[in-house]
Design a protein around this nucleic acid. Sequence first.
DNA 1: TTGTAGGCGTTATCAG
DNA 2: CTGATAACGCCTACAA
Lengths: 355, 355
Amino acid sequence: MDKDITIYDIAKELDLSPTTVSRALNDHPAVNKNTKQKIYSMASQLGYRSNMFASNLRRQRTNTIGVIVPKLNSNFMSSVIAGMEKVANEADYNLIISQSLETVEKEIANAKTMFNSRVDGLLVSLAFDTENMDHFEPFISKDIPVIFYDRVSDHKQFAGVVIDNVQASYEATTHLIEQGCQNIIHITGNLRRNVYADRLKGFKYALLDNDLPFSDASVIINNLSEDAGVEAAQQILQMDSRPDGLFVSNDTCAVHCMKTLTHAGISIPDEIAVVGFNNDPICRVVEPSLSSIDYPGYEMGEVAVRSLIHYLSGLADTSVTRITLRSELIIRSSSLRKGKENNKGKALALLPETK
Amino acid sequence: MDKDITIYDIAKELDLSPTTVSRALNDHPAVNKNTKQKIYSMASQLGYRSNMFASNLRRQRTNTIGVIVPKLNSNFMSSVIAGMEKVANEADYNLIISQSLETVEKEIANAKTMFNSRVDGLLVSLAFDTENMDHFEPFISKDIPVIFYDRVSDHKQFAGVVIDNVQASYEATTHLIEQGCQNIIHITGNLRRNVYADRLKGFKYALLDNDLPFSDASVIINNLSEDAGVEAAQQILQMDSRPDGLFVSNDTCAVHCMKTLTHAGISIPDEIAVVGFNNDPICRVVEPSLSSIDYPGYEMGEVAVRSLIHYLSGLADTSVTRITLRSELIIRSSSLRKGKENNKGKALALLPETK
DNA sequence: TTGTAGGCGTTATCAG
DNA sequence: CTGATAACGCCTACAA
């Protein structure tokens, strides 16, 4: 294994000082154009690559962004990561990605690793059961920016990139109502997570605005897994007054719930209309195909990294603590009843102001 | 933002030399137990965290492993990553993950970034259309180990972690034959990738061993996407002698192919029996549920990182260039015909030696 | 426009 | 068992 080429080697070769070489390589304005050219070509000729560690050590920053994600195995998350990568690469940042697998314990461990790796900033989508934000304290106290995406923190001090979950949920629920549903059940996740709390809120608003009653019995809270979907279906099958509509906060759960209902002889959408959330490819696989809320993952990743880098560059508009991206209801067979129009326009007009 | 605590601070506090502190922190045997204890507690009391850059700079290694993955959006890949993370964390390595999104261009860019980030080793699953291995040359010439997983390189110089695709495919095909299929079509991906070439091989072997004819018309090669699945189905519908069995190298493609066939009025498994590959959760969503090859992703990730670390620690058994993990056929409705037994045992007995 | 000098925090080497 | 010293490669005052 040959020795690495350093700026000293280039300097010696061209009879210049390392300083000049360093400056040229960083495109410093105060270096002669010709000199720069000579340095560039010598660098590539010798196969020079900058030693990030020396540079990091010196500059006290790493050009690395940490990403904590609940799970990677969804189309949504993989799009988010792809968007993050694109922006990060363009800005010469590296990404360190780790999965919390929906547990606080791993999330805490991940945060610690990130901290010790001295990431310049952190992007987090919270695990299902994270209660407090203590594990991000070390970042705050060292002024390392932490930006949340999708599953954000309620604490106002933390910036976040989100969609308007209240509106999306309002839209989905309204759609069900327009399809004739009078007794809708909402299945959602841990209400500590903004996404689920907000969706519940949107659900309630929509019922209210359409003079439909809401009761605690209208909501099933679980972990939105496959199994949870099956269980929820069993619960529903045993209800006294069976619902005629179902709005589920996650496509996986919705799909397995729907399948269980279908197997029990329920006809979808006629007896029960169903809408999911995320617009996962699975929506187009299940029979009938599942209506869902589409969610701009790639864009969310891009925006999150872009904000973080802005912040790191000191250009941050510190007043901006929430960036909201648009989402969209995709209507498919699972919620479209014969003879019913898609009155999406009307639904939108009814939309309350939600900031 | 306060200044970081260094080993000097600890040393000063305890009236020791930085050298001793460094040694203690690295659990060097030649440090007095009491001294070590004192150093540990002082370190945590002051909130010391090691500066990886200084350490990396000095030791010329980064404790970082680069991972290049085609796409993250599958259950399989997310399991692989989870397995990798577990082993890497335990051994105090960091992971830098990036997606090639199935294109050589991004794969090359990723490799370059990894190289410049001075990863200690690289784990790669090749993109669909990667032809040559030139972009890994810089690693080779610097003695940076590159280990492939799943989609490996044929070049004998590269180590890899795989399943026995020939056997898995042989087993799947034999199963279809046992279900009475006489005219099976195999849908697979670019044959430059070992996984697809090997599966084709296993498919041929199984036909051969059961005295069924093989012709080029028995194989459809595409990119295994959703759309490709739909197209393949359309192709099949127009065939003169319609097949009665289908073995697809990827569940997503299989599912969309199957759905298209079903919509065209074909009954599955009776008219056409179908087996997929990967055992993605989607298999249990589609109707009828899809038989598939189950594949130990988590384990593959663990093994890949473990091998890499062994290699980096100089413990490598350089003679081991291929590690093969077990896989398993999961039989579901899409390939199970009434009145047919599951003669899996027989299939296994017929299995040819495949190294 | 270029150069000199010193230090970022750690660890390897050599010497007690 | 402990310590002094010198790198690792780069960058930033400051000086010329």
